Simulated assay, not measured.
Amino acid sequence: MLTLDPQKLLEQQLAESHRRFPGPDYQKVLRWVHQTLKPSLYIEIGVECGDSLLNTLPTTKSIGIDPSPRCKSRPNVDIYAMTSDDFFAQVEAGTISGVSGYSLAFIDGLHTYDQALRDFINLEKLSSTDSVIMLHDCIPLDEISASNPRASQFYTGDVWKTLLILVRNRPDLKICIIPTWPSGLVLVSGLNSKSEVLNEKFSVLVDQYRPLRFADYSSTTSELPSPTPIKEAAVKQFLQAS
C-alpha cells in the first residue's frame, strides 16, 4: 500500500477543505461571537500559539489552558500550562478561583471525542444560564484527519462524536452548527450547571461511541441541526435568541 507524502497529503486536505468551506474562516466567526456577546470572562482550552485569544475584546478577562502553550500570560490574559483535567481539578479544589459563571468558552484541545466531552461536562458545571460553549472541528473532512489517535498534520480528530452525543442525550441544549473553514464551529447555549446527564453516563457513552469511524459520520448528519449560514447576522441571531 502506497503512503502519501505528508506534505502532499496536507496540500490535498487543505485544498479539499477550502473547496468544501469556501466562506469566512472560524477565526472570523470567533470575532463575531466575541463582538456580539462581549464576554466578561472567556475560557479557551487548547491555546497553542494564542491566535484565537487575539479575537477577544480588550475588556474581556481571558483564561487559556494548554499543557504546552506557545504563548505567555499578558495583561487580562492568564495562560495555565496544564491539561484541562488538571485545571478543572484545581478549580474544584479551590486552588484556582474566579472561573464560575464565565460568559464564553472554546473547546479546541486534544480533538478526541472523549476529552472534548469531558471538557464540556466540566465547563457546564461552571456555567451560568447565559454562558455559551464553542466546539471546534465538528465537521470531519476525511478518514485520516478524523482518526483517533492522530495520523496527519491536518487534524479534526473525532470531535464530531461529541456533537452527536450532545444532540442525542441533551435535547434541552440549543446547538448551532456553522460550516466555517477549515472544519466547522459549533455554538452551544441553554447550559444547565446542575445537569448530571452527561456526567452520569460518561463511561457508557465513551464505550458506546468508540467503535464509530469516519464512515459512520454521513449516516448521522440527519440527526443534527441544519447548518447556520456563515453570516454575522445569522450568528448574532442565534446568540441573541439563546
Rank of each mutant, 00 (worst) to 15 (best):
F21K: 00
D5E: 14
V132Q: 02
I165H: 01
D119T: 10
K201T: 09
L185H: 04
E223T: 10
E48D: 11
R213P: 01
E232Y: 05
T112N: 12
D172M: 05
S17R: 13
G157P: 01
Q153N: 06
H111M: 06
A81L: 06
L9N: 05
Q153S: 13
V47G: 00
D85E: 15
V132M: 08
I144L: 15
D51G: 10
V167H: 04
S195G: 03
L135C: 08
L135P: 01
T95R: 14
T228A: 06
A241W: 03
V204Q: 13
I45K: 04
N169I: 03
L54H: 07
N55M: 12
P58K: 00
T95C: 09
S242K: 10
W160T: 05
D216V: 11
L30A: 02
H136D: 15
R19I: 04
G190L: 10
K125D: 06
F88G: 11
L141F: 04
S17L: 10
T220S: 12
G50S: 05
P182C: 11
P75G: 06
K174C: 09
P140H: 03
A93V: 03
P67V: 08
S189C: 15
Q90I: 03
D86P: 02
N169L: 07
T83D: 07
Q237M: 10
L126G: 05
L239Q: 07
F88R: 02
L10V: 04
R31F: 00
S131W: 04
Q208N: 08
P182G: 04
P182K: 03
P229V: 12
M1P: 09
Q27R: 13
T156P: 01
C49F: 08
P39W: 00
V206Y: 04
E143L: 07
D114Q: 14
K161Q: 04
T56V: 12
D86S: 14
I96Y: 11
M82C: 13
L37Q: 02
A146D: 05
E124W: 10
E92W: 04
V159W: 01
P140M: 06
W160Y: 13
L30G: 00
D207H: 11
S127K: 10
S62M: 02
T56H: 00
Q115E: 13
Y26F: 14
N169G: 04
L14K: 12
F214W: 10
A81E: 12
I144M: 08
P67W: 02
D137T: 07
L9W: 05
R19D: 03
P182M: 11
A233W: 03
L239D: 07
H34N: 13
T56M: 02
E48S: 12
F21Q: 02
F238S: 08
P227A: 07
D142S: 15
L57R: 00
Y102C: 02
M1A: 12
S68E: 13
K28C: 06
F120A: 10
L57E: 01
V204H: 10
V99S: 05
S183V: 02
T95W: 09
E196Y: 06
L110C: 06
C138G: 06
D158P: 02
I43T: 06
P24M: 08
R118A: 14
C71T: 14
R70K: 14
L173H: 10
V91L: 09
S127T: 11
V29G: 01
R31Y: 00
L224V: 04
